[in-house]
C-alpha cells in the first residue's frame, strides 16, 4: 500500500459512469484516494497527453475512489475519453480540506456541476458525524443535473434534505443556487456554509454568507503545473491553491482581490473572469 502521496501510482479504470453527455465519472482502486479528505485533489496523468488536478470523487467500495470530469480542454477531454481498462497515473491527494467541527449541528452545502465532487465527500463525512446537511444542487437546465441519486443516498438519514434548482426551471425549483440559498437562509439557521462550483457563483455564496454572519468555506480551482507549491501557477493573491487551499474561509476570501475576479493563464498572465 503506498504511503508517500508524491509517489505516482498507475491505476486501471474499473468503471466509467456517464453523468451527462459531457460529464463522466471514472472509478479506480487507490487506497490513498479512498481516504482523501473533502477538498483534496489528485494530479491525474493521462500518459503522453496531460496531467490535471482533479477533486477526489467518493466511491462506496472500500479502497476505491473516482474522478468526475467535464470535457473542456485538452487534458479533460483526453481523460473523458478514457475507457474501462485504460491506465492513468495519479499522485496526491494534495491540499487542505473543509473543516467540519464536531459542534456543528446543521450545515448548508451549495454546489453546482463538478463542484459537487468535494461536497458529496463532505456530506458523507457530515453524515458520519451526525451533522444534518441541506444540500443545494444548482444547474442551468435539467440535462445538466447529475449526482442526484448519489446525493440522496448519502444524506438519506439524519433529517438531511436535498434541493435542486435550475436556472430555466426545467427541473426542481426555478432559480439560481444563490437565489435558492437566500430563501433557505431565511427559513433556517446553519452553523456553516460549504460551497464549490463556478467561481462567480462561489463569490456570491461567500458574500451572502458573510452578510448573514455565517461561517463559509469554498474550494477553489486554478490552473496548476506542479500541484505541490513549486510552480506558482495557482496563485490567488498571496496564497497557493495547491498548498494553502483548495479550501479557503470566507474571511480569507473576502480580502482577496483575485477571488471572483481573475486567475493566471498557462503563461502566468492575469486573466479576468468576464
Amino acid at each position: 500500500m503506498p504511503t508517500n502521496i508524491d509517489n505516482r501510482r498507475i491505476v486501471r479504470i474499473e468503471q466509467t459512469i456517464v453523468e451527462t453527455p459531457t460529464v463522466k465519472t471514472l472509478v479506480f482502486k487507490d487506497s490513498l484516494s479512498h481516504t482523501a479528505k473533502p477538498g483534496q485533489f489528485l494530479m491525474i496523468w493521462i500518459p503522453r497527453i496531460e496531467e490535471i488536478p482533479m477533486s477526489v470523487m467518493i466511491n462506496s467500495k472500500d479502497g476505491y475512489a473516482a474522478v468526475t470530469i467535464r470535457k473542456s480542454g485538452v487534458g479533460s477531454t483526453a481523460l473523458f475519453e478514457r475507457k474501462t481498462g485504460d491506465l492513468v497515473g495519479l499522485r496526491g491527494p494534495y491540499g487542505n480540506s473543509y473543516t467540519l467541527k464536531k459542534s456543528y449541528k446543521k450545515i448548508l452545502i451549495a454546489g453546482g456541476g463538478t463542484g459537487l465532487v468535494p461536497l458529496l465527500r463532505l456530506a458523507s463525512y457530515a453524515q458520519k458525524l451526525k451533522i444534518q446537511s441541506t444540500v443545494i444542487i444548482g444547474a442551468r437546465t435539467k440535462g445538466e443535473v447529475f449526482f442526484e441519486n448519489i446525493a440522496r443516498k448519502i444524506i438519506q438519514d439524519n433529517d438531511s434534505s436535498l434541493k435542486i434548482c435550475t436556472d430555466d426551471g426545467s427541473y426542481g425549483i426555478r432559480g439560481t443556487t444563490v437565489e435558492l440559498m437566500s430563501k433557505v437562509l431565511h427559513e433556517n439557521t446553519f452553523d456553516c456554509v460549504f460551497t464549490c462550483g463556478p467561481e462567480l457563483m462561489m463569490r456570491k455564496v461567500v458574500d451572502l454568507s458573510n452578510e448573514n454572519s455565517i461561517p463559509v468555506e469554498a474550494s477553489l480551482e486554478r490552473y496548476m503545473k506542479c500541484g505541490i507549491g513549486i510552480c506558482g501557477s495557482c496563485c490567488l493573491d498571496a496564497s497557493l491553491v495547491c498548498q494553502d487551499g483548495t479550501v479557503f474561509s470566507g474571511r480569507q476570501l473576502s480580502k482577496m482581490l483575485d477571488f471572483g475576479n481573475s486567475y493566471r493563464d498557462k503563461d502566468g498572465q492575469r486573466i479576468n473572469y468576464s
Binding site: N4, D6, N7, R8, M43, W45, I49, E50, E51, I52, V74, G75, R91, K225, C226, G227, I228, I230, C231, D265, K266, D267, G268, Q269
Partner: peptide
C-alpha cells in the same frame, strides 16, 4: 509570453529531488 510545455512538467522523484 510563453505557455511552456504541457503537463507533467514537475515531478517529485523522492528523497527531496525533482
Amino acid at each position: 509570453p510563453m505557455k511552456g510545455y504541457p503537463n507533467p512538467t514537475v515531478i517529485s522523484i523522492g528523497g527531496g529531488s525533482y
